[in-house]
Amino acid sequence: MADIVNLNRARKAKARAARVAQADANRIAHGRTRAEREAAAAEEARRSALLDGAKRSDD
């Protein structure tokens, strides 16, 4: 026999899990020092320049 599921509790648990996931993402995005943010930006700029340098021209 199948288990009975309280839909209200399931809905609230799903919303709670989504809030926790969003909080984790915010901690990662905003919980860094200035040096870490600048290092990440420099790394992203280096990767972008490397990728742009490898592009073929559209002639």
Rank of each mutant, 00 (worst) to 15 (best):
K14I: 01
L51G: 03
A10M: 14
N6K: 12
A49M: 02
A17G: 02
E38D: 04
R46M: 01
L50Q: 05
R34G: 04
N26K: 14
Q22F: 14
A25V: 13
A29V: 08
E36H: 01
A54K: 05
I28S: 13
M1F: 15
E44R: 14
D59M: 07
D24F: 05
D52Y: 06
R9M: 05
I4G: 15
V20S: 08
R37T: 02
G31H: 00
A17F: 07
A10G: 01
A10R: 09
A54Q: 13
A41C: 03
A15L: 10
R9L: 07
L7G: 11
T33P: 06
A49Y: 00
A42M: 02
V20N: 10
A40I: 03
A39R: 11
E43L: 11
A54F: 04
Q22W: 14
D58H: 14
I28T: 13
A15H: 03
T33L: 12
A35S: 10
R16I: 04
K55S: 04
K14W: 04
E43H: 08
A23S: 05
A40Q: 08
A54V: 08
I28G: 07
I28N: 05
L51F: 11
R19A: 07
V5M: 15
N26S: 08
H30T: 12
D3M: 08
D52R: 11
S48H: 06
A25L: 10
E38G: 01
E38N: 04
R37Y: 03
D24R: 11
D24K: 12
S57T: 13
R19M: 11
A13Y: 00
D24N: 13
A41F: 07
D58S: 10
N6Y: 09
S57W: 11
D59N: 10
G31T: 03
A40W: 02
G53V: 01
L50G: 05
V5Q: 15
M1T: 15
A29C: 03
R11F: 14
H30K: 10
D52M: 06
R32N: 12
H30V: 12
R47E: 05
N26T: 06
R27H: 15
E43T: 05
K55Y: 07
D59T: 06
R27I: 09
R34I: 09
G31N: 07
E43K: 12
A41R: 15
A23T: 06
R56W: 14
R9D: 10
G31F: 00
L7I: 14
